[in-house]
């Protein structure tokens, strides 16, 4: 297969290239050697071409994964030798209120940031899908937050959510909503952090939806319009079913992102970021893992948290898969 691809990409018929006799240099050598080399080339070179990815993956993906798994079964502090403890690190997590708190926070923060984010993205994509002036500009504009770094975005939002002199509390004061303690109270803090996540990722998801929407055949809309369907009806009955796989994809990706939420709460908390606020009000699983690994130096416990996070993601992935399957069955595809 590799040969044919190469030959056609050269624009020559496959037979013209490998002919051993055309080359004057190899004329002195036995023809079998050349054939062998050629055969070796066709067999081995594909591996050589894909090797960089796999070597990098093995070094930076697979190895850390396996090593973390090994670490999670040991008691190991930075700078000491590992001691086998079996599943103690995992059972320790089961009885640990801070772990459960972090898990709950990860879930609530995930819902608070993902649901509005995807709904808004869907709406935005729908608007961008219309013919409007300056479409290119708007499409770039919605992607701009995605290109902003977590640190920069969070810094700006910290200023806006500052309870004493922040813009949002000032605005609340003007419309008589009262003083909200965005930093220390649990739900306001979680809402503030979700806002940062939502702001950064809505545009990105909107563009993905937009791409999917543009692939929806126009005659479907025409048929719907002929049947007297309103714009909203068209959106619900044509657009959404047509881009369902894309919606599922964004749900999976956002869920993974939400499970790994780290930078926003860490920076939002400032001096108490690692514990997610003074009372762990918004400590996520990633923050808890970081706290264990770097503040305490307990790499074994941190690794156990990492593996639990992986298992949770696999679980969520499996649930998603089941939904996809049942959907397919329903549609009869």
């Amino acid at each position: 297969m590799a040969t044919s691809v190469r030959a056609t990409s050269d624009g020559r018929p496959p037979s013209s290239r490998p002919a051993p006799s055309t080359s004057d240099k190899s004329g002195s050598r036995p023809p079998g050697w050349r054939t062998k080399l050629f055969r070796f080339d066709t067999k081995a070179s594909p591996y050589a071409y894909v090797a960089p990815f796999f070597i990098l993956f093995a070094a930076f993906g697979l190895f850390p994964l396996i090593y973390t798994g090994w670490l999670s079964l040991h008691q190991v502090e930075l700078g000491t030798h590992a001691k086998w403890v079996g599943f103690d690190n995992y059972t320790g997590l089961w009885d640990n209120e801070f772990f459960w708190k972090a898990l709950r926070n990860t879930f609530t923060l995930g819902v608070l940031s993902t649901v509005p984010q995807l709904l808004m993205a869907l709406g935005l994509a729908h608007l961008l899908n219309y013919k409007l002036r300056g479409r290119g500009f708007f499409r770039v504009a919605v992607l701009a937050p995605y290109a902003t770094s977590v640190a920069a975005a969070t810094l700006v939002f910290i200023q806006m959510f500052n309870p004493d002199y922040g813009m949002i509390n000032q605005l609340f004061g003007h419309i008589g909503l009262g003083h909200v303690d965005w930093e220390s109270s649990k739900w306001p803090a979680q809402i503030a952090i979700s806002t940062i996540v939502t702001w950064r990722w809505t545009g990105y998801n909107a563009l993905i939806y937009l791409a999917a929407m543009q692939a929806v055949p126009a005659d479907l809309y025409e048929a719907a319009a002929l049947d007297g369907a309103s714009r909203w009806r068209q959106f619900v009955s044509v657009t959404i079913p047509s881009i369902r796989p894309t919606i599922l994809f964004t749900i999976i990706v956002s869920t993974i992102g939400a499970t790994q939420l780290f930078g926003e709460p860490l920076m939002f908390g400032g001096g108490v970021g690692v514990t997610g606020g003074t009372d762990h009000q918004y400590q996520t699983l990633s923050l808890y893992m970081y706290d264990k690994g770097w503040n305490t130096g307990e790499l074994g416990q941190a690794s156990a948290v990492a593996w639990v996070m992986l298992l949770i993601l696999l679980l969520i992935g499996a649930v998603n898969l089941l939904i996809v399957r049942s959907n397919r069955r329903k549609l009869g595809a």
Binding site: D181, S184, G271, V272, T275, T278, D279, H280, N295
Partner: peptide, 16 residues
């Protein structure tokens, strides 16, 4: 860190 940030600061900020 824990006593000052999660103890005393928590009292100051959240009235614990």
């Amino acid at each position: 860190d824990i006593i000052t940030k999660n103890g005393i600061l928590d009292m100051e900020k959240r009235g614990t």
